[in-house]
Amino acid sequence: MPHKTFLAFILPSLLAMLLFVALPIGSVVYQSLFIEHEQVMTEVETCGPFGCTTERKVDAAAMQELRDAQPAGRFNGLGTYFNSGHLAFDRIGQIWTRSETWGGFFNQVMNLPLYKALIFTLAYTFIVTPCVIVLGFFIALGVNAIPGLIKGPVIFFSLLPMIVTPLIGSLVLYWMIDSRGIIGAGLQALFNNPSLSLKASPTLTWITLFVYGIWHNAPFAFVVFYAGLQGVPQDTMESAMVDGASRWERIRFVTIPYLLPLATFVALMQLMDNFRVFEPIVGFSAEANATSLSYLIYSDLRGADTPLFASAAATSVLTTLGVIVLLTPVLIRTWRDFNRKA
C-alpha cells in the first residue's frame, strides 16, 4: 500500500491517539516541572467599634492574574519529584540512619504516600495475576469436563464478574461484606467474633481487595484457557495414555505445555490491567488502608479544593515509567518476533 493511501486510512485513528494519548503524556511531563503559585498576601485593616485590626488575607485578584499569566504555575524543576509526597529521598535517608532493623525501616517507608501506594500496587499486581491464572485454569478444566448441555449457562454466569463495571462489582461485594451484610455477618458468626470487620484492619482490607481482583479477573483467564483446551491435540493425549501417563501427568506434560503461550498472553494483559488498579479502592472505600498509584493521582486531582496538578503529574510520570519497566520484556519479545517474520 503506498504511503499516501496508508496515511489517509490511518489518519483519524492516529490523530485521535496523538492528541489524546501522546500529547497528554507530554503535558503531564511539562506540568510536573511546575508548582502552584505561592499565595499573594495583602494586609487588610478592618476597623470596628473596638479599634482596628490588621489581617493578612489572600489577594484573590492578584492570584487570578498570576494564574492567567502562567496557568501551570511557577517553575519548580524536579522539586516535586523529590518532595515528601513523592520520592522523598531526604526522608528515606533520615529513616535509614535512624532505624536499626529492616522491619523498622520498612514500616517507616510504608508511611510515605508514594511508597505506600507503590507497594500496594505491586503486591496487587503480583499476587492477583498468578492467582487469576491458576484459578482460571482450574475453572476451564472443570467446565471442559461437564456435559455439553449446561456448558452455555455455566459460561454465561462465569462471565458476569468480568463484564460488570469494576466500580459496581466492587460495590456489590462491599455491601455484602458490610458487618450487616450477609458475608460480613457470616464471617462474624464463623469466627465467633462480633467485632470482626473486613474494613477495619489494613491486612484484611488488602486481602479483600486481592479477593475482589481475583474474582473480577478469573473469568478472563478462564475463557482464554477454555478456548485453548478445545485445541489440545487429541493424538498426543491418546499417545500419552497409551504410554501409561496418569491423568495428572497428562495435564502436566500435554495440556500445560500446550496452554503455556496462552498463559503468557493472560499474564501480560493482567499485569497491564492490575497495575492500574483504581476502581475497587473507591468502591470498597479502602483509601485509608490501601492506596494505589492511580488512586494517588485521583485524590490529588479530586481531593483538595483546587486540584494539585503538579503533584498528580509527578506521580503520573513515575507511574508511566513503571508501566514501561513492566512492559520491557514484552516489547523485546515482540521486536524479536517481528524481525523473525520479516
Binding site: 489524546f20 503524556i25 503531564v28 497495575f275 483504581f278 492511580s294 493521582i297 486540584p307 503529574a313
Partner: peptide, 12 residues
C-alpha cells in the same frame, strides 16, 4: 497507560 495518568494530563 493507566487512564488516570492521561486524565491528569487533560485536566489543566
Amino acid at each position: 497507560m493507566p487512564h488516570v495518568t492521561l486524565v491528569s494530563g487533560y485536566l489543566l
